Amino acid sequence: MGIVGSQIQPFTATAFQAGKDFFQVTDGDVAGKWAVFFFYPADFTFVCPTELEDLGEHYAMLQKLGVEVYAVSTDTHFSHKAWHDTSDKIGKLQFPFLGDQNHVLARNFGVLREGQGLADRGTFVVDPDGVIQLVEITSEGVGRNANELVRKIRAAQYVRNNPGQVCPAAWEEGEETLAPSLDLVGKL
């Protein structure tokens, strides 16, 4: 079975979040909510802080949409704190960073680079039922775009809330959707 449409697997991870003590996050904490698992290769790297900063600029908007963001790398929660305390870009971020030094999350989501101990650059959107709805995986040197992530989340939420409707390419909130039917076959 492909990962889209599959259920997230059980996990427990220690998190760092600005202004808080270290805390545990489990698959149970995600249940009933929308969540983004934003995997990146490693702390103290090059593309990662730019895309995490971009995501951070959209964090308040994502929270208004009922979405929690979890940044995940195979570093420890201690490394996440040290990076937060020493990087201007990372120091601004308010979402939790999950330590995955045992590679449970990276394996569960299929992004672990076996033999390297690093995660691929992958984004996973999980719905309130714990089902993976969206996946994006890019190569090492290609950073992601949080504007596009927000657009896709809005589309996924629209489809969930409006059974029988689908969002066409480049759909933006408020635009027309489609109701798949035999009448549309061959007419689009």
Rank of each mutant, 00 (worst) to 15 (best):
V131G: 04
V166G: 05
I153P: 10
T123D: 03
D120V: 01
G115D: 08
F124Q: 01
R160E: 02
N147W: 14
C167A: 13
Q116N: 13
D120C: 13
L178Y: 08
G141Q: 15
N162W: 07
A169G: 12
A156C: 07
N162S: 14
G117S: 05
V159E: 08
V142P: 05
L118K: 01
L118G: 04
A170E: 09
V125D: 00
N161G: 13
G110C: 12
Y158T: 12
E173I: 04
P128G: 11
L149W: 13
E173T: 01
E140A: 06
L178P: 13
E136S: 09
R121M: 11
G115F: 13
A155P: 05
V142F: 13
G122I: 14
R160Q: 09
K152V: 12
A169P: 05
N161C: 03
A170R: 06
G174W: 06
L118Q: 02
R121C: 05
E114D: 14
V142M: 08
V125K: 02
A155Q: 03
T177K: 01
G164H: 12
A146E: 06
Q133T: 15
V159S: 00
R160M: 12
Q116P: 04
I132Y: 00
A169Q: 08
G141F: 15
V135W: 06
L178G: 06
A119Q: 02
P168W: 06
A146F: 08
Q165S: 09
I153N: 04
P163T: 02
V166L: 09
R151D: 00
R121S: 05
C167M: 07
A179L: 05
D129M: 07
F124E: 02
P168M: 11
A155R: 01
E173G: 03
V166D: 09
Y158V: 08
R144T: 10
R113V: 07
D129P: 07
N162P: 06
G143A: 08
V142D: 05
N147V: 12
A146G: 03
G143F: 10
G130A: 05
T123E: 13
N161K: 10
A170V: 04
V131A: 00
N145H: 14
N147R: 09
Q157W: 05
L112P: 06
V166S: 06
E172Q: 14
S139W: 01
L134R: 03
G122E: 01
E173A: 06
D127T: 01
G143N: 03
R144D: 03
N162K: 10
N161H: 03
V126R: 02
G110E: 15
I153R: 04
E114S: 14
P128I: 09
V142Q: 12
V111M: 00
C167H: 04
A169S: 06
E114A: 15
G141N: 14
E148A: 15
R144F: 15
G130V: 10
W171G: 03
R144L: 06
K152T: 14
D120E: 11
E148P: 03
D127E: 13
E114Y: 12
D129I: 11
R113D: 09
L118T: 04
G122Y: 03
E114Q: 15
P163Q: 00
Q165N: 13
R113I: 09
V166K: 15
E148S: 05
L134V: 14
Q116S: 14
L149G: 10
L118N: 01
A119G: 04
F124V: 08
I137G: 01
I132E: 00
L118Y: 08
L112R: 09
G141E: 10
L118E: 02
L178M: 14
